[in-house]
Simulated scan of single mutants.
Amino acid sequence: MSVSGSGSGRGAGSTPTDTATALAPYGWDEGWAEAFAPYYAQGLLPGRVIRVDRGQCDVVTAEGTVRADTAFVTPHDPMRVVCTGDWVAVQPEGNPCHVRAYLPRRTAFVRSTSSRRSEGQILAANVDHAVVAVSLAAELELARVERFLALAWESGAQPLVVLTKADLVPDPVTRSHLVADVETSAPGVPVYAVSARTGEGLDVLAAVAAGGTSVLLGQSGAGKSTLANALLGEDVMDVRAVRDADGKGRHTTTTRNLLALPGGGVLIDTPGLRGVGLYDAATGVGQVFAEIEELAEGCRFHDCAHESEPGCAVQEAIAEGELPHRRLESYRKLLRENQRIVAQSDARLRSEIRKDWKRKDAQARAAMEFKRGGHWR
C-alpha cells in the first residue's frame, strides 16, 4: 500500500466537488458530505480509514492516501476508537497527519472482547453487507454460522453467507443438501456457493458487493483472502494453505483492510476470528431464530421456557419435525450468553436474572416433590 508524502498544506485545494469525485469509489455520498460540512470550515480534509495499526491509520482522501495519528480521538472507550471503514476529518498538516474526528457511524460490526469485562470491539464500520464465509472443505458448524449472523444482523448490515471452495464438493446433490442446511440456519439470508478457483458464483457475489461496503467474516481457513483476491482481480491479500487434518488455516490477514473493487463497491477483509463473542445482540439473535420467536407467540404461557410446559408451540413444532431441536438449543445458548454479557454492566438485569434462577429452582423442587408424593405442597 502506497502512502503519500507529508508536505504542509495538503487539502488546501480540495473542494467538496473534488472530494465527491475522488471518494465516490469508496462510498462517499450526499449524506456523508452533509455530515462533514462543519469540518470544511475548520480546514479539515475528509477521508475514509482503510487500515488501522497501533494508534495510526491509513486514510484515503481526495489528495491521495495519508498516514494519520489517532491520538486526538482515542478515548478509553474501545467502542469509540477509530476503525476500518470510518469516515474521518483529517488535519492535513504534519507528518503524520492527525484525525480530529470521525463521522457518526451508520452501522458497526461489534463483538465482545476476550477480557472478563463487558466491553465491545468494533471490527468494521459503515458496512452495508456482512459476508460470512464458510468453507465447504471442513464440516459445517451451523451453530457458528448462527453466531456470526446474530452479530451481522445486530450491526445493521445485511448479512449473507458464502460457502467457499465449492469446487471441493463436485456432487450437486451433496452440495444442494449443504446449502439447504445453511439456509435452514439462516432464515431471510441469501446463501451462495462459490469457488474462487473455478469462478463459480463470483459474478453474483461481485454484483452484491458493488452495492456498497462489504466486510468478509469467518474463521481462519475459510478462504476469505482467496475470495478477496478473486473479487479484486489480483493477488493483493496473502494466502496460505490450510491444514489437511482439519481444514483449518493460520491467520494470513493480520489487519482489517478496506479495498476498492474494480466492479464497484469496497471490501473489508478481516483476520480469521477464532472467538466471536456476542455483545448486546438480542435483536440479532431474534433475527437469526425468527421462526422460534414466531412460534413462541403461540405458546399458552407468555413466559414459556419451551421445555415441558403444556401448550408449548415450540416443542410441538419439534415433535412434528417442523423445527430441528438443534436450533432451539443454539437459540437458548446464544440468549444465555448475550444475557450474561449485558448483565455484567446492568445491575438491574443481574437482579432479575437471580430472581428468575430462584423461581425456576423453586419450580423444579416443587415438581420433584410432586413426583415423590403425588401431590403439590
Rank of each mutant, 00 (worst) to 15 (best):
L45I: 02
N126H: 00
E139C: 08
G47I: 00
T84D: 06
F36A: 01
G120P: 02
T84V: 12
V49H: 10
S176D: 08
A130P: 14
V182L: 00
D171S: 14
D128T: 09
A125W: 07
V110W: 00
D128N: 10
A180D: 13
L45A: 01
V169F: 10
V169I: 06
C83K: 15
L136K: 02
V49F: 11
P38D: 07
R116E: 05
E63H: 05
S115K: 06
V132G: 00
F72I: 15
R51N: 09
Q91S: 13
V59C: 10
C57D: 02
L103N: 07
V182Y: 00
D86H: 06
N126P: 13
A35E: 07
S118T: 14
R100M: 07
Q158A: 15
T164W: 07
Q91C: 08
T174H: 15
D77R: 01
L151E: 04
A152F: 04
D77L: 06
A125K: 06
Q158I: 13
T61R: 11
V162I: 13
W153Q: 04
E119Q: 05
V88E: 00
I122R: 09
Q56R: 14
D171I: 02
L44P: 10
T61Q: 08
V169Q: 02
T113N: 09
T65W: 03
T113L: 10
E141L: 05
Y40G: 13
A143N: 11
V145T: 02
Q42D: 12
A71F: 13
D58C: 05
N126W: 01
A37S: 11
S118N: 12
R100H: 12
A35C: 02
T74N: 13
L136Q: 01
G55E: 01
Q158K: 15
A133E: 05
V90T: 07
S155I: 02
V182R: 00
L103I: 13
L45P: 13
V60M: 10
R51T: 12
Y40T: 12
G43K: 01
A137H: 05
S112K: 11
A125C: 10
D77Y: 06
R67L: 05
R111H: 06
S115W: 05
G156Y: 15
E141Q: 11
V81Q: 04
Y102Q: 04
A101P: 00
A124N: 10
E63P: 14
S115I: 07
H177I: 09
E139R: 05
R111M: 01
Q158F: 15
V49Y: 09
S155Q: 00
A157G: 09
V134S: 03
V110N: 10
V162T: 02
V173P: 13
Q91T: 11
W153Y: 04
E154Q: 06
A157M: 02
S112E: 10
L136N: 00
A124I: 11
P159Q: 12
R67W: 04
A180H: 06
F72Y: 15
R51D: 07
P172H: 09
L178T: 01
V179W: 11
E183Y: 12
P104T: 08
E154V: 04
R105P: 01
T84S: 11
V49P: 15
V88T: 01
A137Q: 11
L160N: 09
V134R: 00
H76P: 08
P170R: 08
D181G: 09
R117W: 04
V90I: 08
